[in-house]
Structures are given as C-alpha cells and as structure tokens.
Amino acid sequence: MSIPAAALAALMDNDDLLSEFLLRLPPQPSSLPRASLVCNHWHRLVTDPGFRRRFRAHHRNSPLIGVFEDRMDYPFFSHSLVVSERLLSADNPNSSSHIVRTEDSGLGWVILSPKNLQMWEWKVCSEGVARWVLRKTEKMYKILGMM
C-alpha cells in the first residue's frame, strides 16, 4: 500500500476527522469496542462521553432502540433482573446492557462484559408468557479478533 505516512498522520491525528469516521460506524454493539482497541488515540476518543453522546444522536433512528446506563432501575425490564443480576455479578461492573432490534424485528438484549457478549431474545411462548431466552454467547476475544 502506498499511503504516504505524513498524509495518514495528518488524517488520523485530527480528532475532528477521526470522529466523523467513527460516528458513521454501524450502531452494532461491537463497532465501538473494536475501534477502541485500534490504538491509544482511538481508545481515548471512543471512550469519551461526548463522543458516545454524538454516536447515539447520529444513530437515533437506527435499530438500536435504547441504551440505558442504570439497568437496575429500569422497570420495563424488571422481568430479567434476576437473570441479569446473576450474569453480571459473575463478571464485573463494566458490563453493560443494550436493547436492540433483532433482525426479524423482535426484541433483543445484548450484554457486554469484558469476557463475553451475550445475546438474549424476548420470546413469547404459546401460553402467552414472555421471557428472555439466551441465544448466543461469544467470547470477546473471538469477536475482536485479538488472538
């Protein structure tokens, strides 16, 4: 690849430009974590609360329908508190939850922790009882492709 180092540095050292690129990443739960591990500079930018607000604003019409900071106070998901508490306590406080639309327009719940990504789906069974069902657990290092 014949990219002059100076041209690359001029682009990538510029926070304004870099954040314009990263804002346009798809709003999937893996986008920002991956970007944050590209280098220290990206890490600093992506973990900045201001950037994350902009990212959410940029994607507010996207399939990501909610990200809540204080999951235990969120009444709508009280159903899943027992499950989430058990899952989260086994891991560490850096875990976070993201409510997403699944591909078939169902309700999905993604739990991110330093080690795992878990995808849950809101399922209504034949008796009309709804609950969260674990669909998939992925090791984080596999998703990030670090090893």
Partner: peptide, 18 residues
C-alpha cells in the same frame, strides 16, 4: 508496547461502554 497497552485496555475496560 502498544500491543500491551491495548491488551490492558481490553482487560481493564472490557468493552468501550460503561
């Protein structure tokens, strides 16, 4: 060194979401 820093970020912060 950079690689070690990134590995540390990965373990300390996990995902970039808090």
């Amino acid at each position: 060194e950079e690689q070690a820093e990134m590995n540390a970020h990965m373990l300390e912060y996990g995902w970039a979401y808090e």
